[in-house]
């Protein structure tokens, strides 16, 4: 019981502290400190409640147990990470996003394709594409190639729709200026359209980071070699080793956040001129 009381008191104290911090003058440090404190509070609350109510670790292991398991099974986790993230998700992400990018440039050039392909693209972007996974596993085999193929299909349409929207983002007056300079198609593409499209392109790239990871992991549920994050999750759930499952989830969360954060950093460096990046 003391664990529960401790957790609740800790939560109240931290919340009061957060309210104080949030209502005082904002600084850069505080904007990082407040969410961090909130995250720590959640972990302490989790740990305290699980221990206090004696919840079986088969149902919900406490964070300390997950951390211990994480530390002891680093080689396995690394192997799964390589298989699923580097080979499956990243390969598919690069192929899918570049294909969608090139397609978007072609679509932007042709009015017919734009009117024909965009409604279909918007439609397909809302479909449960993940359902294609069993078919692609059947076609490309159990190894990472089929996972990459699932990722390619999942990221293609969101990326296409965003890039096409971006390529139309420049103003008429800017286009007229390029015409006045006598710029060729390629010149105005590289000097005007593409830079103006960058915020939209990065929006697509950021959405696709999560999709890529999900696609690669879920595709492994339909068959995979004996390594990979999705494989590990589905087999360890069967053995009720939930601490290992949570360790894999931690890896996935870290990889996903790092992937997203990395894209956001590149975006910040390349689109520093855009109003949304000014602070």
């Amino acid at each position: 019981m003391s664990w529960v009381i401790f957790a609740v008191v800790f939560w109240l104290v931290m919340w009061a502290l957060n309210v104080r911090l949030a209502n005082s003058a904002p600084t850069r440090l505080k904007s990082i400190l407040v969410p961090t404190l909130f995250g720590i509070t959640l972990l302490v609350l989790w740990e305290g409640l699980v221990r206090g109510f004696n919840i079986s670790p088969i149902l919900l292991p406490p964070p300390s147990m997950i951390a211990a398991r994480f530390a002891t099974s680093l080689p396995t986790l690394w192997e799964d990470f390589l298989q699923t993230f580097i080979k499956g998700a990243l390969t598919g992400y690069i192929i899918g996003c570049s294909a969608a990018f090139l397609m978007a440039i072609a679509v932007d050039r042709s009015d017919f394709l734009k009117r024909g392909l965009l409604p279909i693209g918007n439609f397909v972007a809302a479909l449960p594409i993940i359902g294609m996974a069993p078919i692609l596993v059947m076609w490309f085999g159990f190894d990472w190639q089929s996972k990459a193929a699932v990722v390619v299909i999942m990221v293609f349409f969101p990326m296409l729709v965003n890039t096409v929207a971006g390529l139309q983002a420049q103003d008429n007056i800017q286009r007229d200026l390029m015409n006045t300079y006598g710029a060729s198609y390629w010149q105005s593409l590289t000097k005007l359209s593409l830079p103006a499209a960058l915020p939209f392109i990065f929006n697509g790239l950021k959405i696709c980071t999560t999709l890529a990871l999900i696609g690669a992991i879920v595709a492994e549920f339909f068959g995979s070699p004996i390594r990979g994050m999705g494989f590990r999750i589905s087999t360890e759930v069967g053995r009720l080793a939930l601490d290992m499952v949570w360790a894999e989830i931690t890896v996935a969360a870290l990889a996903g956040s790092a992937f997203y954060g990395g894209m956001a950093l590149i975006e910040k460096a390349l689109t520093f001129w855009h109003p949304s990046q000014r602070t």
Binding site: A22, P35, T209, I217, V245, A253
Partner: peptide, 19 residues
């Protein structure tokens, strides 16, 4: 706003479907 919003965004980088 300051404490929950960043975690709402982080929650989506976790591939929930995998879980």
């Amino acid at each position: 706003d300051m404490s929950v919003m960043p975690w709402v965004i982080t929650s989506q980088t976790i591939p929930i479907l995998a879980v």
